[in-house]
Amino acid sequence: MCTLRAAPHRVGFFMGSVAMLASFAWWALLMVQRAQGVAPLSAIPPAWLHADLMLFGFLPLFMLGFINTAGPKWLGVDPPARPHWLGSTVLYGAGSLLVVGASRWPVLQALGDVLHVAGWAWAIAIWAGRIRRSASPDQRHARSVLLAFGLGGLALALQVAVSTHAVSARWASVVVSLGLWGFLLPVFLTVSHRMIPFFSSVVLQPYQPWRPFWLLYAWIGLSLTHGALAIAAGFTPYACSALPDLVWAGLLLYTSWRWQLRRSFKAPLLGMLHASFAWAGIAMLLFALQSAAAAAGVYIGGYAPLHALTLGYFCSMLLAFVTRVSLGHSGRPLMIGRLTACLYWLVHAVALARVSAEFVPAHASALFSIAAVTALGTLAVWAVRYVPMYVLPRPDGQAG
Rank of each mutant, 00 (worst) to 15 (best):
L53G: 08
W85S: 05
F149N: 02
G76A: 09
A110V: 13
L64W: 00
I131T: 06
V114Y: 03
A123Q: 04
A161G: 02
A51K: 07
R34M: 14
K73A: 15
H116N: 12
L98N: 09
T89S: 13
A123C: 06
R132H: 11
G153T: 09
A125W: 14
S42N: 12
L147K: 12
L61H: 10
Q109S: 12
L111D: 04
R104Y: 13
A155H: 06
W48F: 12
A47K: 14
L146T: 04
G112C: 09
P60S: 11
D78N: 04
G37T: 10
G153Q: 08
G37V: 12
A121M: 13
A35H: 06
N68R: 06
L41F: 03
Q36E: 14
A157E: 06
A70M: 15
L30S: 08
A47E: 15
R104M: 13
I131N: 02
A35S: 10
P46K: 14
G65W: 02
P72Y: 00
S96F: 08
W48I: 00
W105I: 13
V145N: 04
M31F: 09
W74I: 00
I131H: 05
T69M: 08
H116W: 15
N68C: 13
L111K: 05
H141N: 11
P137W: 14
T69P: 01
A110C: 05
L151R: 00
H141Q: 11
F56L: 15
S163R: 10
L108F: 06
T164P: 02
D138L: 08
L156N: 05
G87N: 05
V160Q: 06
A43P: 05
G101P: 10
L59P: 00
A94F: 14
S136N: 08
W74C: 05
F24E: 03
D78I: 06
W122P: 04
L49D: 01
T164H: 11
M63N: 05
H50I: 09
V114H: 03
W85M: 10
A148R: 00
